[in-house]
Amino acid sequence: MKAKEIQDLIDFIAKSGLNKVNIETEEFKISVKRDPDQKVKYVKDSGAASAPAPVAAPQPLPAPAAAAPATPSAPAAPAANDESKYVAIKAPMIGTFYRSSTPESPSFVNVGDEVKQGQVICIIEAMKLFNEIESEVSGKIVKVLVDNASPVEYDQPLFLVDPS
């Protein structure tokens, strides 16, 4: 399935009012789900266009998925004790993670910054749509877990926040 076909599918779902669609073939598996109450601002090519649209989350076939979790779990185990009091803000979609709206702009948040629930903390680009990601919790940014302009997966931790 080409990117244009996926975008057309997402546009169709947004217009139809459907909240969830699953498509599975021999070559791929795609699940598109949106929360009708979710407030996500979409900006296309740095313009000011806002449109509620679903989030596409292509899922890998079972073979690659089994190999991926094995690598991150080993280094995360020793650090889990130190970071257990922190809340992880996770990626709500797959795409490319950006800490600022443009390369020249300062980062939305840095380590040590206080954030409030609903504050924009980063952008994730998915299929030429720039999605502002808002903080789910209030607190202090303790750690940025992803490098700028890096690809991220659905539910991947992006930031650690100390809610106290």
Rank of each mutant, 00 (worst) to 15 (best):
P78A: 02
K39C: 07
A48I: 08
S107R: 15
V32R: 00
F108E: 00
N81A: 12
I124L: 08
S16T: 14
A51S: 12
Q119D: 09
A79D: 05
R34I: 10
V120E: 03
G17V: 07
V87N: 03
E132W: 07
P72Q: 12
K90A: 13
V144K: 09
M93K: 01
V21E: 06
K39Y: 10
S31T: 07
D35M: 11
K15C: 03
K128E: 01
V40F: 07
K39V: 14
S50D: 13
G139F: 07
K33R: 07
K128Q: 04
Y86Q: 00
V144L: 14
I23K: 14
K20W: 06
V144S: 06
A56Q: 05
S138C: 10
F12G: 15
N19E: 15
I13E: 04
N22S: 15
S101T: 07
Y42I: 14
G95E: 00
A49C: 05
T102A: 15
A57K: 13
Y86K: 00
M93G: 06
P72A: 08
P62H: 06
S84P: 02
L18D: 15
Q59N: 11
Q59R: 14
Q119W: 01
I13M: 15
P69Q: 10
V142P: 05
P60S: 15
K85A: 07
P75F: 08
A68F: 10
L61Q: 12
A70D: 07
L129C: 00
T25I: 09
P58Y: 12
S84R: 13
M127A: 03
A77Y: 09
E24V: 12
A49I: 10
I123S: 09
M93I: 03
K39A: 12
D113S: 04
A149K: 12
I133H: 01
T96E: 02
T71L: 13
S50R: 04
E104V: 09
S46R: 13
K29V: 08
A126F: 01
I121Q: 01
A14P: 06
K90P: 01
V40Q: 04
V120W: 03
K116Y: 11
S105W: 05
S100A: 15
G17S: 12
F108Q: 00
K44W: 02
I141D: 08
M93Q: 04
V144C: 09
Y86S: 00
I124N: 01
E27F: 07
F28V: 10
A14T: 08
K128M: 04
V120S: 05
E83R: 12
N131L: 01
I94Y: 02
M93A: 11
M93R: 03
A79E: 04
P106M: 10
E104Y: 08
T102N: 13
P69H: 13
L145H: 11
A126T: 03
S84T: 07
I23D: 08
K41D: 11
S101E: 13
I141F: 12
K44I: 04
K140D: 06
E104C: 10
K15P: 02
Q119A: 09
E27G: 09
I30Q: 00
N81F: 09
I141S: 09
A126L: 02
F12P: 05
K85G: 05
S150H: 15
K44C: 03
D147M: 08
E83V: 04
V87Q: 04
K143H: 07
Q117P: 04
E125P: 01
